[in-house]
Design a protein around this nucleic acid. Structure first.
Length: 725
RNA sequence: GCGCGGUUAGCUCAGUUGGUUAGAGCGCCUCUCUUACAAAGAGGAGGCCGGGGGUUCGAGACCCUCACCGCGCACCA
């Protein structure tokens, strides 16, 4: 018997060695698996942000996906789990900006190429770290197919998609209102905005004969349109288009009455003025009535010259001063200081979002969403848990166009060129001038055939989700790659519920658009990992649990099974150290049980066992049947992704049936030499069966034990043993 | 405001299409170092299944309603 068995199980001395064994076997790569003519099973790993360390959520991802993959591999599928790392555009840039801040530097004013290179170095250094951490979790993914979101072939496919969408009219360059963060100096899509409830003041201001209510007096300098509902009886005497002269913040102005049904008659006084440059709703009204739009606040959040004496001031500081001035002019009717409303903020820094009109790239989402809706509704893509389907379809039904330009350097540059200034044709070419294209999509610098002007490249980068949204077919090398033909559509997309719109819905839309097929058949959502008290982990609260600390302390197997037991899909999980500790004992329990079994089965007749000619006594026979029934049951549950229940059942069977009953019973039989052969055969048979069934959950300790079991047949790695059905 | 979850043992959670005395892990209590394992064994306590109403022979599960917790969405200035 292996001497290691005489001491308690030592994960530290085992895990790295076992992982290396797996890696060197080549079986992470499906091309090397036996019976490769089998049906494929594919999971694309959500690319891990290369800007930090593995957190508890990653620990859950790696555990669940590895369980899925190991199970399918043992069931004989041609199993591919394709790992990836994410440059994570804005996220990483924010992390790097904080680093710069600490060093007393700032990205503004830095040469963009220089900054890009710095962040790239930072990311590549981190990548190595992250990869070793993924390995630490036991992830049996195919490193030979690893992808990084900035790989050349990734960028090429993303460019092809962008071009195709542009040519299909699904991408347009629009001068529209976008959500702007004045700290990060970039625009966002709607998803990067976090709504926050705040209590502020609602100011009732006298605007000629009207009283308007506003929470943002600092935007009101240029307001020359006063809007009310056409059916509001209080204001019937005012006609659409009517001019009114009135005294405003910085002097007399001429205002125009506009009637629009967007006005809520219940709110405030039922009258408002509009600031189309800095408010979504106002923008819409201005568009409907073809009204001019004027910028009041610059990109840094300072007031522009239109604000007169307040020009150059930050809006926050200017607000009370403006109110003071209005008060002295007698233009303040009243102030409601307890006005509770929702403020849109930057999800990263909490800065209040300042809508701005900017020329950006937008994706026309309606057609894409309609296709996705059809496919999701007809069941082509299944959601686990199912209620995420409702959440998704609701979002898709109300989808807005997607701003995909970001004013940051860390990302994939947008392949577009602008003819600026406008074309001045060479002599003799004037009549062709209208053929000159102001915007050219492509990676190569274009030349204008009518004039000598050079095109300038769009300085912006893509929203990182525009490229991640193409991940399944990009990683499998659409359109001509061998892998694409074999492994696409993939089987399962496993990720956290927070990515349901950001990533999943977009992958579905882009997947159907580009490949005509679903990118995956099933979406499996795990819940958020919370701390032991059920609170969200955050650095500021100081309750962040590092999965690597737990694996170090209790072993990866204990961590993995602790993450899975009782953790139903979609439900958040309170991660407690006690639970993990409990499963450390479990790993050791198997270890010790193995010692007993091997100690007592030295003289076992293996050939009888493999041939199935063992004569079990009545109770042992019953036990064999019981385990068979259990395996059948859990196999069904594995296929239904009920890992939380399978893990618990196996735990329970091993501890309270195999150890407590079968082992105890066998002691007597062996000691008294009564039905000893039956008992020995049963011990051996049950242990090996349980090792196989437990392997997807606790791969390290089971593989280690497997290597110690003498067997007549030539032995392979447990990871490619046949599932014991 | 609309939508989606949740509320079961001290804690974290299971409980499949409604069907006997409601389960697990951890924690707690008592005893035991019995030759696989004290990281253990044997035994035990602990639950009007959030409140109220209804459907049913029968409800933790189904329907209505209320309360509380969590999350998401929204252009009410």
């Amino acid at each position: 018997m292996d001497e290691k068995l005489l001491k308690p199980y030592d994960p530290k001395a085992t895990e790295d060695r076992i992982y290396k064994l797996w890696e060197e076997s080549g079986f992470f790569n499906p091309d090397n698996l036996p019976n490769t003519d089998k049906e494929p099973f594919t999971i694309i790993m959500p690319p891990v942000n290369a800007n930090g360390s593995l957190h508890a959520g990653h620990g859950l991802v790696m555990t669940i996906e590895d369980i899925m993959v190991r199970y399918k591999r043992m069931r004989g599928f041609k199993t591919l789990w394709l790992p990836g790392l994410d440059h994570a555009g804005f996220e990483t840039q924010v992390v790097y900006e904080k680093k710069l801040e600490k060093e007393g530097r700032t990205r503004f004013g830095m040469d963009s190429k220089e900054l890009y290179k710095e962040i790239l170095d930072f990311t590549l250094t981190n990548s190595k770290n992250i990869k070793s951490q993924i390995k630490k979790m036991g992830a049996s993914c195919d490193w030979s197919r690893e992808k990084f979101t900035l790989d050349d072939d990734v960028i090429k496919t993303v460019y092809d998609t962008f071009k195709k969408m542009y040519e299909d009219g699904l991408i347009y360059r629009g001068n529209r209102i976008v959500s702007w963060c004045s700290k990060h100096q970039t625009s966002f899509s709607d998803l990067e905005i976090k709504d926050e409830e705040q209590v502020e003041s609602l100011y009732y201001l006298k605007y000629g004969p009207f009283v308007i209510a506003t929470s943002r007096p600092e935007t009101k300098f240029g307001d020359k349109y006063v809007v009310m509902h056409p059916e509001d009886k209080r204001y019937l005497e005012y006609k659409d288009g009517q001019k009114i002269n009135l005294e405003w913040i910085n002097g007399p102005i001429e205002a125009t009455v506009i009637k629009d049904t967007a006005i809520d008659m219940e709110f405030g006084t039922g009258v408002m003025t509009i600031t189309p440059w800095h408010d979504n709703a106002d923008f819409e009204i201005a568009e409907r009535h073809s009204l001019p739009k004027e910028q009041v606040i610059d990109e840094n959040g300072n007031l522009l010259p239109i604000a007169g004496e307040f020009a150059g001031q930050r809006i926050k500081k200017a607000r009370p001063l403006i109110i003071e001035k209005l008060q002295t002019k007698g233009l303040v009717e009243k102030i409601d200081e307890n006005y509770k409303h929702v403020v849109r903020t930057c999800y990263k820094c909490g800065t209040v979002i300042e809508p701005q009109i900017k020329t950006q790239w937008f994706v026309k989402m309606k057609p894409l969403a309609e296709k996705a809706l059809e496919k999701i509704n007809n069941g082509e893509i299944k959601y686990i848990p199912e209620h995420y389907k409702k959440i998704t379809t609701y979002w898709l039904e109300n989808i807005m166009d997607w701003n995909i330009s970001r004013q940051i350097v860390w990302g994939i540059p947008i392949p577009a060129w602008f003819h600026e200034p406008k074309c001045v044709p060479k002599p003799g070419r004037e009549k062709d001038m209208e053929k000159c294209r102001e915007i050219i999509v492509g990676d190569k610098e274009p030349v204008c055939e009518f004039c000598d002007a050079k095109y300038t490249r769009d300085p912006d980068t893509f929203d990182t989700w525009f490229s991640s949204g193409q991940w399944p077919y990009v990683t499998l090398r659409y359109p001509d790659g061998k892998d694409f033909k074999i492994y696409y559509p993939t089987d399962i997309l496993e990720t956290g519920g927070d990515l349901v719109f950001f990533w999943i819905a977009r992958m579905i839309m882009l997947g159907f658009y580009v490949t005509g097929k679903a990118p995956f058949k099933t979406v499996y959502m795990h819940g958020t990992v919370l701390d032991a008290k059920g609170l969200k982990m955050s650095k500021s609260k100081g309750n962040v649990i590092d999965p690597l600390v737990l694996t170090e302390k209790y072993g990866t197997d204990a961590f993995r099974i602790g993450m899975v037991v009782g953790n139903t899909p979609g439900t958040s999980l309170a991660l407690s150290e006690d639970k993990i500790r409990g499963y450390k004992n479990f790993a050791n329990k198997i270890w010790n049980a193995t010692r007993f079994v091997l100690d007592n089965t030295k003289d076992l007749n293996y050939s009888g066992l493999t041939a199935g000619t063992v004569n079990y006594d009545e109770e042992d026979k019953k036990s064999e049947e019981e385990l068979k029934a259990l395996i059948k049951e859990i196999t069904k549950e594995m296929d239904e992704y009920k890992f939380y229940i399978v893990a618990e059942k196996l735990y329970h069977y091993l501890w309270h049936t195999f150890a407590d009953i079968i082992i105890e019973r066998s002691k007597k039989k062996i000691a008294e030499n009564k039905n000893a052969d039956s008992a020995k055969a049963l011990l051996y048979s049950q242990l090996t069966t349980l090792l196989k069934a437990l392997h997807p959950f606790i791969p390290f300790v089971t593989e280690e034990i497997w290597s110690m079991i003498p067997e007549v047949k030539e032995k392979k790695l447990l990871m490619i043993e046949k599932w014991p059905l």
